[in-house]
Design a protein around this nucleic acid. Sequence first.
DNA 1: CCTCAGTGTTGACAGTGTCCACATCCAAAG
DNA 2: CTTTGGATGTGGACACTGTCAACACTGAGG
Lengths: 210, 210
Amino acid sequence: MVAKRPYHHGNLKAALLRAAVELIAEVGPAAFTLREVARRAGISHNAPYRHFREKDELLAAVATEGFERLADALGKPRKATRARKANPALRRFQASGLAYVRFALRSPEHLLVMFDWPLAPDRYPELSAASKRAFSVLVELVEAAQSEGSLPAGDAVALACVAWSLVHGVAKLAIARRLPFQSQSRILRFAAQAIQALYEGMGPKQPVSR
Amino acid sequence: MVAKRPYHHGNLKAALLRAAVELIAEVGPAAFTLREVARRAGISHNAPYRHFREKDELLAAVATEGFERLADALGKPRKATRARKANPALRRFQASGLAYVRFALRSPEHLLVMFDWPLAPDRYPELSAASKRAFSVLVELVEAAQSEGSLPAGDAVALACVAWSLVHGVAKLAIARRLPFQSQSRILRFAAQAIQALYEGMGPKQPVSR
DNA sequence: CCTCAGTGTTGACAGTGTCCACATCCAAAG
DNA sequence: CTTTGGATGTGGACACTGTCAACACTGAGG
């Protein structure tokens, strides 16, 4: 029983987070307005300040939520990869790349705030912790593939950054509608090709000069 | 002789563009303010409206300038690649990837407005024309490498998008300071590695399963 | 010399983020 | 059971923003 909003809302913080995500989805982070969020939550324009120090702290909460969901999406295999024979760690690594793009397509509003909004990391320690955690998930996937032998030994962080750059680029260009593909399935197919290209090389199978 | 700003400024439009780029470099596009630009140009807060319909049109002009410079940077080889023996087109293609990242490091304010600011493309036709032009430079580089044989035949646009995604990801993560490298030279070295990895494949030289 | 289009200015308005003082509620102390 | 204090929500205020309308200055062409 949540009652009928007598004076104290009960769980305003969560409601504000939800409303914020919806508003960002509609108008983008730039046109996002604290007062409009308050309006949608049916409260006064000052109530949010009891739960967030300032506008940016609400955005930071959205970004934190985003990094947590992203870490989940990366870590958890999509469907129980049924008894893969070869290179399961590589498989999971590549799947996580697709998951990154899928996350971006499903929650573009989160990705926008996570990467395109200037939030001082030292002011929002939970946010930077969440982002570090998500990155470490990626590094672990790389290390697993390395010890499996399906990725070259060496600086796992650097390897992870290369892979990250590729899928991040695909994700950002996709949600900015800069790629010449419309449907989400076409975009995901393209992402899979890109990931494959990064692993196998995009050069011709028979190098011209050797 | 430009005189001493009598009443008519003379070339306010250009001055506003310069001031806008500087301001974005300092505070980012989100905190960018039309009135502050006017202050820096030493004019009233309404003078910009004689040259730009609205705030976003000034931003769009910045973005347009950015795409034009980017197209130049991609198209023109950095230093006259002295008498390359093999695969000159491939060389130029890879160099253009580095140029993309170099452009981002040199002009992060332009890149931010170009890709992270929501500008209705139909409201600013010059902007979308400039962005199309820049993309076509990239596609031409791909096609040249294809006819040289150093890239596989097939959809040049898709190939270009893969390469674009990689360098765009590197560029965006770099200027957002998300990569674990500090100096510009380290970042450029990393970018070169990533480009090389995309061409040769990041898998082990001796594939584990074949 | 006049005029008039282009350029710059002043003043206004609604909307924003944030501060302050005040109102309301719930739970624990007495 | 009352009291009371901390947490939560409200209303008003302020400086600032983007944008509009009316007005002022200027220089080139009649």
